[in-house]
């Protein structure tokens, strides 16, 4: 892990946002330093997704400020440095498209107009390879499983070779085997110096990668530090599965509520 830089890649200060009349974010502070992997945790409706979507400018703030790479978010134009994985259960749309075609659209942030060059095509192939779908690149995304859809969406984000990955529940509905592949992909990216902000519902196989966890509850940050230990109801059997064969390193798969 690289030494943490002083200049953060994401800096959110006192962010407030409302959806309709309901306040969803009520003064959120969130910082991601260069090379850091930060998990945003919390129950459904705690504001995780809204926080992430406000970082990328999809939800307008009613107060506070957001900076990306030291630039105020409204003036930030260098979107090729950011790879975004939206919360989706499918990568398909109304018309068939191959994995390669979907992943190629991630390259638009580098080459907005004009033809794709050899370097662009190589980056697309590399991204597909990273998520282990090279042999299926020509297949229609509608023929994929849920976990493979998520891998396509991640490859699309990686195609622009971003310095910062923002992922909204990349593990939702993904089987364990695909989760392991995604974790390995992410590990490789982090080793290469990529910063990551990800919304998670449960830590799962990503736990060893996470430097810091930020827990939201009803739009407020209630924890900012190392991934939370199981306390309260999470420590109860049925929430915290400690398996005897992994005594040295307990594997927690319990839901964070």
């Amino acid at each position: 892990m690289a030494a943490l830089d002083q200049d953060p890649v994401i800096s959110v200060r006192g962010a407030t946002a409302t959806l309709g009349a309901r306040p969803v974010l009520r003064g959120v502070d969130l910082t991601v330093h260069r090379g850091e992997v930060v998990a945003l945790l919390g129950a459904n409706g705690s504001g995780k997704s809204t926080a992430v979507r406000s970082v990328i400018g999809q939800v307008p703030l009613t107060g506070g400020r957001i900076e990306l790479f030291g630039t105020e978010q409204k003036r930030f134009r260098d979107w090729a440095r950011v790879g975004y994985v939206p919360q989706r259960t499918t990568a398909a749309s109304g018309v068939p498209a191959t994995i390669r075609e979907v992943v190629s659209s991630g390259r638009l942030s580098r080459r907005r107009f004009g033809w794709l060059t050899k370097a662009d095509k190589a980056a697309v192939e590399a991204a597909i390879d990273l998520v282990g779908l090279t042999d299926r690149a020509k297949d229609s995304v509608s023929a994929l499983s849920g976990g493979q859809h998520q891998r396509v969406l991640i490859a699309r984000a990686l195609a622009s070779e971003p310095e910062l990955l923002i992922m909204d529940e990349p593990m939702a509905g993904v089987d364990l085997a695909s989760q392991e592949i995604l974790a390995a992909t992410l590990r490789e990216q982090v080793a290469g110096g990529t910063s990551v902000l990800l919304v998670l519902h449960e830590l799962g196989p990503l736990e060893p990668l996470i430097d810091r966890a930020v827990v939201l509850r009803e739009g407020c940050v209630v924890h900012d530090g190392p991934p939370p230990e199981a306390v309260g109801q999470h420590a109860l059997p049925g929430h915290d599965h400690v398996h005897p064969h992994a005594a040295g390193e307990p594997l927690r798969t319990g839901l964070l509520t």
Binding site: G57, A80, P86, A97, S105, G106, L108, S160
Partner: peptide, 14 residues
């Protein structure tokens, strides 16, 4: 294609 496939993602590509 990108805009029609996933509008939110297309916005984040700038």
């Amino acid at each position: 294609f990108a805009v029609s496939q996933d509008e939110e993602f297309a916005r984040v590509t700038g």
